[in-house]
Design a protein around this nucleic acid. Structure first.
Length: 507
RNA sequence: CGGGAUGUAGCGCAGUUUGGUAGCGCGUUCGGUUCGGGACCGAGAGGCCGCUGGUUCAAAUCCAGUCAUCCCGACCA
């Protein structure tokens, strides 16, 4: 039979999904492990993706009335203790600062000294320290709503880490808002969930399900938690963003009170919401293939790589003049409100090595230009949404005028592919046996990608949820917000149910 | 934090069962031949065999401890 096609990533997704993920990150130069256990070093190509995520999201936050601010990385232990559920939720994974300086230990090393009166917690999230500020900033109903966002790093001392998906330190944004009424706070929670969903679909090209978390999956201290859930190529779910309606829990804990129009004191209603560098993990697992990283053009660090092919030193000047002028011309073209960014790759490598390197990095368009193309004034290029060898030629002027629409086309193709994959692997179940079969490996000795999203009825009891989790390691990812009212019977206990929920294995 | 696996050249690995000169492939350096499809030939360079201790005339190899990484669990964005 035919030989297996050579892939740039070994192993393939099918062969070993977890290892494939690591290799994509490595060969695309996105990030690496650091000397500090569980913490990652984000390399320039990976960080540039984060910068693009930040840029677009930040604009969406500003457009919805939010302002950026910055709060301390250290939280007094007493702050964290104010909200009972909250402290219980985070206590097990906190980095604690207990000393303020180092002293010579007399043996050529250093010892810790200067014990603090009260330990500081390196923020795992900032509800409590921001709440403390809000309590001082809010006095009257005229001070509300208060709409704040912070771009920051947080630390959660995770025991099992994976680059981008779960690291001890990660970068994120956390929105924190305070409102005069419950309705307004609930609307904010909903609005920001819509912002996240729109961002995921339009920029990251990842379709998501929006919905509410069940009680067991709720953020510690929240009244209600909402999320966007995306399907990865191993058919597992990844929570890509969350928003929380905090009720008056944190307002009471931090003392965020205001005088209403009638002159009475009331507690504010607060929300919080966040997305993190985990989105880069989502990008990798939603789009990338056996040849490496795939990055949607709207968040790609660069759109085009130009690879000049120089066979003789006497061609060099001609080719280089041509490619630099092409680069400059491309840089004047605007795609998605941003000038096209070009990598001119003159590294001393064969051009096919350079071409493969850019495939692995996920650049949307690769241009390979030699003397033959230049004589015809044509551009020979490959698209990352097509096979590596499936390349085409186009007249230079045509290429310049159509590059924006080509990039838009690539962006759409990634989304359509991900949407098809997700829809093909989202299945409705009404029979418990079938449901269990869907999530059970045929042969546990040879793990294979299996399962998907299962839409099934749930009576609402934590016991049924727990049973399914215990049996199958499958959890309720969300109660979809657009689920139509439908009578049925709980997939576990058979009791009456009024709506379907989404079950899946998750990251 | 429990179970399993793995740490040997920049990367990927063999060698460990049975202790006795440190190996292979890729990459890299130099020379040559090729040159529009991840080139070929030749010659080099490159190692506290994760770390600490023990056993031994002798340890990559045996023993104890320790650290790190990966996988599976529990926990979580």
């Amino acid at each position: 039979m035919g030989k297996k096609a050579k892939t740039a990533i070994v192993p393939t997704r099918e062969e070993n999904y977890a290892e494939w993920y690591q290799q994509v990150i490595k060969l695309a130069d996105l990030a690496e492990n650091s000397e500090v256990r569980g913490c990652m070093i984000i390399k320039p190509w990976g960080y540039a993706i984060w910068e693009n995520i930040q840029k677009h999201l930040d604009k969406m936050f500003k457009d919805t009335g939010h302002k950026n601010a910055y709060f301390p990385i250290f939280i007094p232990k007493s702050f964290l203790e104010k909200e009972a559920e909250h402290v219980e939720g985070f206590a097990k994974e906190c980095a604690v600062v207990t000393h303020s300086r180092l002293e010579d230990d007399g043996k050529g090393g250093l010892k810790v000294a200067g014990e603090l009166a009260e330990p500081y917690i390196v923020r795992p999230t900032s509800e409590t320290i921001i709440g403390d500020s809000f309590a001082r900033w809010v006095n009257s109903y005229r001070d509300l709503p208060l709409l704040i966002n912070q771009w920051a790093n947080v630390v959660r001392w995770e025991l099992r880490t994976r680059l981008f998906l779960r690291t001890a330190e990660f970068l994120w944004q956390e929105g924190h808002t305070a409102h005069a009424t419950e309705l307004e706070a609930r609307d904010e929670t909903k609005k920001m969930l819509d912002v996240y969903a729109e961002f995921a679909e339009k920029y990251l090209a990842i379709p998501v399900y929006k919905g509410e978390k069940s009680e067991s999956e709720r953020f510690p201290g929240a009244v209600a938690t909402f999320c966007i859930e995306a399907m990865m190529q191993d058919k597992k779910a990844l929570q890509a963003g969350t928003t929380h309606f905090l009720g008056q829990n944190f307002a009471k804990a931090s003392g965020i009170r205001f005088q209403n129009k009638d002159g009475e004191m009331e507690y504010a209603w607060t929300t919080s919401w966040g997305v993190s560098t985990r989105l880069i993990g989502a990008l990798i697992m939603a789009h990338s293939d056996d040849n490496g990283m795939v990055i949607p053009p709207r968040v790609a660090p660069a759109h085009v790589a130009i690879i000049p092919i120089i066979k003789d030193s006497d061609q060099e000047e001609l080719v280089m003049d041509y490619v630099t002028s092409l680069r400059d011309e491309l840089k004047d073209v605007v795609f998605d409100g941003r000038n096209i960014e070009v990598e001119l790759d003159t590294r001393d490598m064969t051009f096919s090595e350079r071409s493969w390197d850019w495939i692995k990095h996920g650049i949307p368009i690769r241009i390979e230009l030699g003397i033959r193309d230049i004589e015809n004034d044509s551009i020979y290029f490959g698209r990352r949404d097509m096979e590596p060898k499936e390349k085409v030629s186009m007249q230079r002027t045509d290429f310049i005028t159509s590059i924006s629409s080509i990039l838009a086309d690539i962006q759409n193709n990634y989304y359509d592919r991900a949407l098809c994959f997700r829809n093909d692997n989202t299945v409705e179940f009404d029979d418990k046996k079938e449901f269990y079969k869907f999530f059970t490996l045929r042969n546990p000795n040879t793990p294979k990608i299996h399962g998907g999203f299962a839409s099934a009825h749930w009576c609402g009891s934590p016991e049924c949820e727990e049973k399914i989790k215990g049996d199958l390691k499958v959890t309720i990812r969300c109660i979809p917000e657009d689920a139509k009212g439908e009578n049925g019977f709980c997939i576990n206990c058979g009791a009456e149910s009024k709506r379907r929920v989404l079950f899946a294995k998750s990251y």
